[in-house]
Design a protein around this nucleic acid. Structure first.
Lengths: 108, 108
DNA sequence: TCAATATTCAACCAGATGGTTGACGTTTCA
DNA sequence: TGAAACGTCAACCATCTGGTTGAATATTGA
C-alpha cells in the first residue's frame, strides 16, 4: 500500500544511498565495486542496494557471478517532477497531479 | 551531523506530511485545522509538523493561542537541485505536462 | 474567575531501519 | 577438483519512527 513516492523519497533520505546513486550515474557497477569506497560491510551495501531496487531507483542483473547495478531514472524523475511542481506552482490539485504522473510516466 | 538533504527527503517520505504540505500550498493554517481532515490524533499531527519544521520545509509562528504553519519552499529547492543534477527531466513529455498545468491552474 | 480552546509533553508501544557477524550457495579458473 | 571471489541470508542489536493516551501549559472570552 505504500506509495511509490514514499519508497523513492525514503530511499533518497540516506546519504550512503545518494552516494551510490551518484556513483552509478557514471557507469554501471558490480556490487563489490559499489561497496569498495564505503567503510561498512558488503552485506550492509547489499541491503542498501535492495532498498534502491525496491524503490525502483536502480535495477540489478546477474551475469556470471557478478551482479551489475544500473541507475533507473524513472522513479527519480517522478519524485523530481513532484518537487518541481511544489516549488513552482501555486494552487494545484496534487491528487490529480499524481494521477497525471501515473498516466504520463512509463513503468508503474 | 545529519545532512539537510537527509532531513528534507525523509520528511517527504511520509504521505501524511506530503498531504500537509499540499494543504499549506493553499494557505497558512493553524495546527488544529491542519489536523482536521486526518484520522489520527492531534498529537500525531503535531509531531509531523515538528518533523517538517526541523527539515525547514515549514515554519511555525505562535500568535495568541494559535500556532500558524507556513510553507517554506526554500528547503525544497536544495533537494530539487540535487535531483536536477541527475538531469532526467528531459525524458518527461513537456507538452503533456504543460497541457496538464493549463487544465489544472485556475483562470490563467 | 473559570471553562473552553489550542497545542505540546511524557510515557509507552510495535514495527522499521541500518548496522554487525558468520554461514551459505554460486561461479570462476588454475 | 578445489580454493578464491561474488553476493546473499539469517540472526542479532541499537536506535528511529509513527502512532496512542492522558496530563500539562497557555491563552481566550464570557
Amino acid at each position: 500500500m505504500t506509495h511509490k513516492l514514499d519508497l523513492a523519497f525514503s530511499a533518497l533520505a540516506d546519504p550512503t544511498r545518494r552516494a551510490i546513486l551518484a556513483m552509478l550515474l557514471e557507469d554501471d557497477m558490480a556490487v563489490t565495486d559499489v561497496a569498495d569506497p564505503f567503510e561498512m560491510s558488503l552485506a550492509a551495501i547489499s541491503k542498501h542496494l535492495g532498498v534502491l531496487t525496491t524503490a525502483g531507483l536502480i535495477s540489478q542483473e546477474k551475469r556470471g557471478r557478478v551482479k551489475w547495478c544500473k541507475l533507473e531514472p524513472d522513479a527519480l524523475r517522478e519524485a523530481s517532477v513532484w518537487m518541481q511542481a511544489f516549488g513552482q506552482m501555486g494552487a494545484l490539485d496534487l491528487d490529480d497531479f499524481e494521477a497525471f504522473l501515473a498516466a504520463q510516466l512509463p513503468d508503474s
